[in-house]
Simulated assay, not measured.
Amino acid sequence: MTVETWTLLPSVPKVATRDAVRAEADGWTGVMLADSQNLAAELIVEMSMIVARTERVLVSPGVTNPVTRHPAVLAGAFATLQAESGGRIAVEIGRGDSALAHLGFSPMKLRPFRRYLQALQGYLRGDEVPFDPSFVPAHVASVGDLGLGVAPEGSSLRWLRPQQPKVPVGVAATGPKVIAIGATIGDAVSFSVGGDPERVRAAIERARAARIESGFDPDSLRLGAFLNIAVHDDMETAARITSGKLASFSRFSVMHGKVTGEATGADEAELERLHGKYDMTSHGRADAEHTTLLSAEFAERNAIIGSAKQCLERLMELRELGITRFFLTEEFSREGVAGESHAAIVEEIVPEVNSWT
């Protein structure tokens, strides 16, 4: 199975497109953009700009959510981009985080998240999807109230071309229940449990078990991992480089205050402290105060840091577990040691990982 390397880009007008063009030239398989309307530029617009300016690179949200768009709207947008790009679109979706927090909401609950995923997949396949009033505000009345002679009885993307490749849906997951949902409904599961091989192994085992229990071939499920990465020969410097993104991604393991995702006892205290002091108004910022809460030892266990050789050894260990999609997240800065780390990733990490099978 082909191994993929993905990079998360700053979702800023003009900047995202420029960086996507560079990422394509640098050999990345795909580029991701955050879907967080208050903190980042509009996802679909920026994806459209990238598709128009690139030729090969895959494009995906990293990640979208099930609340701010009806599944028909989300599916229609991505299917349109799929047609315009010649099949270069993928979807990563989770229960929601900063996009919802900045509207005053928490992540979607599990049962409606499952229904949303089922509807999204149905739309992308071209199926007729039953109406579900839970996807719209309660004050919106039924179409039946109009008394039409003939009213729609279901919902589908009627314009979808049968020959168009279906947009693959990956589910970003940390806890066991979301992993199981992703394994049974998604085309892929992308684990956000850090880079500790034991945590990744446990997540893979949960996904495969859920897939088998549902009667599906476990080998047909693609497995990915969101990994914070920094290349530097000095571990403390590497830990400092990745501290901002590591704090943001580590928070998923303690979203509701209780640690999930098979974290070890040594990490639980740090994760709980992070949860108690996390500043969502500074989400994703490298200078946020909460970035100082995770130790260098935590980073060494949970991020991919060190020399290029050390990072490749860590990544190969995860590849041997079954990971084929590497979502490598680094700091956005291209100055100083962060810039040196980025250059090493592009020159030494990406081409090597892309050569793996």
Results as ranks from 00 to 15, higher is better:
Leu146Arg: 01
Thr80Pro: 02
Glu92Ala: 12
Glu153Trp: 13
Met32Tyr: 15
Ala23Asp: 05
Ala72His: 05
Phe113Arg: 00
Ser156Phe: 13
Leu100Phe: 14
Arg56His: 07
Ala101Leu: 13
Asp97His: 02
Arg161Phe: 14
Val167Gly: 00
Thr64Ala: 05
Arg53Ser: 08
Glu24Tyr: 02
Gly96Asp: 06
Pro66Ala: 05
Gly62Pro: 08
Ala79Cys: 09
Val136Gly: 09
Pro107Val: 03
Ala77Ile: 04
Met49Ser: 02
Ala34Gly: 04
Arg115Trp: 06
Gly149Gln: 13
Arg88Trp: 11
Pro133Phe: 04
Phe131Leu: 07
Met49Pro: 00
Ser142Val: 00
Pro61Phe: 10
Leu157Val: 04
Arg69Ala: 10
Ala99Val: 15
Gly147Arg: 02
Ser48Trp: 01
Pro66Arg: 12
Val73Gln: 02
Trp159Leu: 07
Pro66Glu: 00
Ala90Cys: 15
Arg158Leu: 08
Ala34Tyr: 07
Leu103Asn: 06
Ala79Trp: 02
Arg111Glu: 10
Phe135Asp: 00
Pro71Thr: 03
Asn65Asp: 06
Ala52Ile: 00
Glu24Asp: 08
Ala83Tyr: 08
His139Asn: 11
Pro165Val: 10
Leu43Phe: 06
Pro130Lys: 13
Leu160Asn: 06
Pro137Thr: 11
Gln118Asp: 14
Leu100Gln: 12
Val91Trp: 01
Gly27Tyr: 00
Lys109Thr: 10
Trp159Phe: 13
Leu100Met: 09
Val140Tyr: 12
Lys166Thr: 15
Gly126Leu: 06
Leu124Ser: 15
Ser134Arg: 03
Trp159Ser: 04
Val129Ala: 14
Leu157Cys: 01
Ser155Asn: 14
Tyr123His: 00
Ile89Met: 15
Ala141Tyr: 05
Ser85Tyr: 06
Leu157Pro: 07
Leu160Phe: 11
Arg111Val: 09
Gly154Asp: 08
Ala79Gly: 05
Pro165Gly: 02
Val140Trp: 15
Val129Ser: 08
Tyr123Ala: 05
Ala83Ile: 13
Glu55Asn: 12
Leu74Asn: 03
Val140Phe: 08
Gly149Cys: 13
Ser36Val: 03
Gln82Glu: 15
Glu153Arg: 11
Phe78Trp: 10
Glu92His: 07
Gly144Val: 06
Met32His: 11
Arg158Val: 13
Ala119Lys: 04
Phe78Glu: 08
Trp28Glu: 14
Leu103Lys: 06
Gln121Val: 12
Asp97Cys: 08
Arg22Phe: 14
Arg95Ala: 15
Ala101His: 15
Val167Trp: 01
Gly154His: 15
Pro137Phe: 11
His102Val: 06
His139Pro: 14
Ile50Tyr: 00
Pro61Asn: 09
Ala101Phe: 13
Thr68His: 11
Ala141Trp: 05
Thr54Phe: 01
Thr64Lys: 11
Leu100Val: 12
Pro165Phe: 02
Glu24Leu: 04
Val59Met: 14
Ala23Arg: 03
Gly147Cys: 09
Phe113Glu: 01
Pro66Phe: 03
Ser85Pro: 04
Gln121Leu: 10
Pro71Phe: 05
Tyr116Thr: 10
Ile93Val: 09
Ser106Ala: 15
Val63Arg: 05
Pro61Thr: 05
Phe105His: 07
Ser60Arg: 07
Val45Pro: 00
Ser85Phe: 03
Ala25Thr: 12
Thr29Pro: 11
Leu120Ala: 01
Arg95Tyr: 10
Pro71Val: 03
Ser36Gln: 04
Asp26Leu: 07
